[in-house]
Write a protein that binds this DNA or RNA. Structure first.
Lengths: 365, 365
DNA sequence: ATGAAAGCGCTAACAA
DNA sequence: TTGTTAGCGCTTTCAT
């Protein structure tokens, strides 16, 4: 590890940097026999620079693999070319949760951000400290914020938006809300899923999810609406709160079963929760979907591969992620941005006990 | 959304910013009746500043919620206080994969980075373009790099390390390698798992994973070693390459079955792959573990909740993530850093058909 | 078509 | 203990 660099160093004649002392715009200028300003212009594609000069500069830039210092550039131009993604739920109870849904969404956001030529800062700021989010832009680290899940931060988010901070959040669209959200139609998605369960002849349907989260509250409304449409009175005993982690869901389901509750279906507020619930049911010798039908939410990749394959409400993370980013850039550019509610799709597979002839298996369609 | 800010604005007397025009250090200095330098000193906890002055400055800073501009600070001090995490596999074939293992590791890295008071830049640079990684630090965007999975970028990573760039990669420890890695003992982990399968009486064991990835190659070595120890000759027909995505694994497994291969166990190179494989087996009416025993790798949270619960080789993402970060900071500080190989643990659950009396179910221990 | 000079917001000598 | 003066590396008037 000692001589290799030296050897390489001897190769290039200019040898800009061996380890430190990166080449700067001034250096390129000197070598090209022009001024800093000209180099700057050449690099930013200004038309007021001689083609020949530009070529000479380009060559130098290449051969020395010079890159403009974005930090200095940003300081001068007043922006950062990076946006932050904040995932409150990433640190539920100081333990990273690992819901695949987040990574899927994050992946799409990363793509979209990169397409705009921006960098992405991932922040672990919790929902409690929205001023932490504000700092991110106040200290000139990012140009805007994307929050995934409003969680309990609603008020804080309102404050940020009121301050004119570029901000888009993935989550529920609340009444009287002043910040921009992108999210699926939680109410309709849940209603549709529960209606489907009812159509299968299920009547005692468990609601598995924590209603303190705005999106979950909307899903609960959909649940209630579907029941109402069928003339069913919601039973409080079947309203089971649980966090998004597998273990929490398992525990919740187990104690429901232990409590002797009677039910024939479960509407779980995420696929991860659904999977844990199924596990708990099977452990007790209950068959899914025969004894208990289960529907999840999200349609994470693994949903199709579980056994039984999971019926679930698909959230379109691809267009969601892109929209999140587009709306943020609109705000940064000073253009108006309006909240968007994405339609959901009920993906019927085996776990809900629907027309088994049509069981959707991955790859089979 | 129009009058709220105005109302709030009237509340605070100083009213630093309504929307733009963030307050700067100069402003605080003027208000405090001191110079910029004094403010700078006060804020950085310098001992050469009068306590009373410091208090006055602090008060102003609070009331105007002033934050120093990290971009300017970094420009001056020569660092960025942010490090980049590059996940090559995040964009296999232009499609984001969503292996929970990555999120778990990423979460721990995020924690550790935050503990150091640094920011985390998430980059989608692919394994092919390691010069893209170099740019990240050359353009002054980050102080160092963490690559998750060396994938096919080995040579590029070597070059970066040779240039003296702070870099740590999660992956396999290759011979003659000049960059620092953190990773589990892939060879031993795989060997142990396969040996366990053999101990259950299985002899025809499928290897499910792509050997072009260094870590997978090591796992294959372990697989071969375990077979050899039992006097079993590896059958090339049972060496099934597959990418990390669920769909790819499903396809691979299906065509193996369709090809009429005979086998009684599967060693899958990730839990996601294992789950898809089980799905494929069950679709064909094969029982797991009775007909085919399956072992996975990673021990993602969901492994315990699958049906059957997955026997798997646990990789300790918590200490892995922390180590990755610690070693990177060591390099940044100019301290020496040595590669670390983490021990793995075989977590025996139902899918491998081991002593079923002891089936490990989540929460039951 | 190019150069000189003035900053972007901050820190770090060097003085006082 | 505090202020003054230079920059960090770049962009951008304003001249030429």
């Amino acid at each position: 590890m000692a001589d290799k660099p030296a050897a390489t160093a001897a190769t290039q004649e200019g040898q800009a940097r061996t380890k430190m002392g990166a080449v700067k715009m001034d250096d390129i200028a000197r070598m090209a026999g022009v001024s800093k300003s000209t180099v700057s212009r050449a690099l930013s594609g200004s038309p007021l620079v001689n083609e020949e000069t530009r070529a000479r500069i380009q060559a130098l830039v290449e051969s020395h693999s010079y890159r403009v210092d974005t930090r200095a550039q940003g300081l001068r131009k007043g922006h950062t070319h990076t946006i932050a993604v904040v995932i409150p739920l990433l640190h539920e109870h100081d333990q990273p949760i690992s819901d695949p849904f987040f990574l899927e969404l994050l992946g799409h956001i990363a793509d979209a951000v990169a397409d705009h030529g921006y960098d992405l800062l991932l922040s672990k700021i919790g929902p409690g400290r929205t001023n932490g989010m504000a700092d991110l832009v106040d200290t000139g680290r990012v140009d805007g914020l994307i929050a995934i899940g409003q969680s309990t931060a609603h008020l804080g988010l309102e404050r940020l938006a009121a301050r004119g901070m570029p901000l888009v959040v993935w989550g529920a669209q609340l009444p009287e809300q002043h910040y921009v959200t992108v999210g699926s139609d939680n109410r309709a998605g849940a209603e549709r899923a529960v209606a489907h369960l009812i159509a299968q002849g299920r009547r005692r349907i468990v609601f598995l999810g924590q209603r303190t989260v705005p999106e979950i509250r909307l899903r609960h409304e959909g649940y209630v609406a579907a029941l109402a449409a069928a003339g069913i009175e919601p039973d409080p005993a079947l309203d089971v709160p649980t966090r998004f982690a597998s273990a929490a869901a398992l525990t919740a389901m187990r104690s429901l079963i232990a409590g002797g509750a009677s039910f024939d279906a479960v509407f779980a507020c995420s696929d991860v929760i659904a999977i844990s619930a199924i596990r708990a049911l099977q452990d007790q010798g209950l068959k899914v979907p025969q004894d208990v039908a289960v529907v999840g939410y999200d349609d994470i990749q693994m949903a199709a591969f579980y056994n039984p394959a999971l019926t679930t409400v698909r959230q379109d993370t691809a267009t969601g992620g892109r929209l999140l980013v587009d709306l943020l850039f609109a705000q940064i550019a000073g253009r108006p941005a309006r909240s968007v509610m994405l339609p959901t799709e009920l993906v019927v597979r085996a776990s809900c006990g629907a027309a088994l002839s049509g069981t959707t298996t991955p790859g089979s369609r």
